[in-house]
Design a protein around this nucleic acid. Structure first.
Lengths: 290, 290
DNA sequence: AGCTCTTATGAATCATTGA
DNA sequence: GTCAATGATTCATAAGAGC
């Protein structure tokens, strides 16, 4: 078996990537810091400056991505003064001008979105997962995501517990998944461009930007084993941990030193997890269990 | 009981609305012709020209909508040459320049979306429902659209024990205090900005732009009984039929005569009036309708 | 195992207060 | 006034504990 490498690099991706050659990566999947009024958070920048800040970075992404590669950008605009901010729309337009193709917009439906109540707004339960490409002919393994539950379902088809039905329904939302028994021997269904995932609510001290299932899904869809994944805003290292577990090489870049430390721990545990064949949650709490 | 009126008017909404006074409508909800679909029937509306075509119409919408009213625009860009077209993004930006507030973007998740398979694209299972307003203080009846609560509340409300009010400590972190008193006597929760509705599989010959549940939801949310709803691209009349059933007055405008006929059938005899653009004079098509 | 019940918590938003 | 910080509101999910 070939060795799988996962690197976490401390620095600003615009600088770090400038030292990489062209056409290195098969997939870029990331959840950049959102524009925010609060200056003291993660490098917080004003929404008005966001596009200007992003473009030099995406220029590097465009260069280091293979022609058959894909760039997935998870982002959502905040409400401000009663309005949705338009910086994401402007970013899409600017990226197209930069040379990207705006291939698709996936919706991540956050089933357990943040609570709250306001006089003229409901809770925000979705985020954008924007797909950009360099060419129309990119790699896409549709079959890899045909079985939403993966090996898990095959192992459990015999028992047919209540939870099996529930989890299947929540993944597919297709209306025909009432009973997992119907699924046996049936032709597998392709997913749509709407992803139903819960955010992770674990007892951890630091929060991941997105749940592991999100990068996992895109890595399955847009890469093969042995390919190389980049997350230029890797945060606590979720993307690299998932990539390693799935036997994809990965490079994660993070500007905040304290996150880099966490990210490296995550990889180490993930490496161990290769033998476990356990779920995501097992890996999260791995240190407790072993 | 006051009488509820439903009018279907044959004509182009930009002309028809010019004869209406300011501030007439409480809600505008519509699903306009998509840019690339009915190109031949609507006079060559290429995506590139869409914004230009739309703005004179939305200028009328802005004028005839009450300050407390809401404009809901159901729209989705199609994929063309492997890319999503950007005309909807450009439209949002243009509408803001025109004076609209872009208050929210609801996602309509189409549970049973159109089947099909493509080499590098999954089925499109969602559409945008863009919410625009004239002011920040618009009418919104949140209680009217509440949904059954998750199961956890049922069990929870019986016990009402202990530290249900804890987490109020609220010193570190922006964690919520959970004040169980807010749940007493409640069986329903507020929805989110993601709508899960199936498309309708009716046997009608025309293709319904949206299922009845969609205008119904927004009419519930943004109007009271006796209010007045406008659909400037009413098509087969779905919006007016729903409005009448919910005891809201409505005006539907449609440029295609054959759709006007269908719309007429949808509305109970005696409760609707069908007008021709440009006045009540008997004209060429008048005999067909009356 | 397989239930139920308990508990923790998350890329949120707005009105108000303070500098 | 303009901008930043604080307080108030709230629900789906999963881990863990108990039976």
């Amino acid at each position: 078996m070939r060795e799988i490498k996962a690197e976490i690099i401390h620095g600003d991706c615009v600088n770090v990537l400038s030292e990489y050659s062209d056409n290195m990566f098969d997939l870029i999947v990331t959840s950049p810091p959102y524009a925010d009024k609060r200056k003291n958070t993660y490098g917080g920048m004003a929404p008005d400056k966001y596009v200007e800040w992003f473009l030099p970075r995406s220029e590097q992404f465009l260069r280091v991505l293979k022609p058959t590669g894909t760039f997935i950008l998870n982002i959502k605009e905040k409400a401000e003064n009663g309005e949705r901010h338009t910086f994401v729309l402007e970013l899409i337009l600017a990226l197209r001008k930069q040379g990207w193709l705006w291939t698709e917009e996936f919706i991540w439906h956050k089933k357990n979105c943040y609570p709250g109540k306001w006089p003229n707004r409901f809770r925000d339960a979705w985020e954008r997962c924007l797909q950009f490409n360099k060419t129309r002919h990119f790699k896409m393994n549709q079959k890899a995501v045909m079985v939403p539950m993966g090996d898990w379902a095959n192992a459990r088809l015999k028992s047919l517990g209540k939870n099996d039905v529930v989890r299947f329904d929540s993944q597919v939302r297709s209306g025909f998944g009432k009973n997992i028994a119907n699924w046996v021997g049936r032709e597998k269904a392709y997913p749509t461009n709407v992803l139903h995932l819960a955010t992770e609510c674990s007892n951890k001290e630091h929060s991941a930007a997105f749940p592991e299932a999100l990068p996992e899904w895109f890595i399955k869809l847009f890469t093969d084993e042995g390919d190389t994944v980049l997350d230029p805003f890797v945060g606590s290292g979720t993307t690299c941990a998932v990539a390693q577990r799935m036997r994809r090489n990965s490079v994660g870049i993070e500007i905040l030193a304290e996150y880099c430390g966490l990210a490296k721990e995550d990889i180490a545990v993930g490496d161990y997890q290769l033998f476990e064949k356990g779920g995501r949650n097992a890996r999260r709490n791995g240190s407790k269990n072993h």
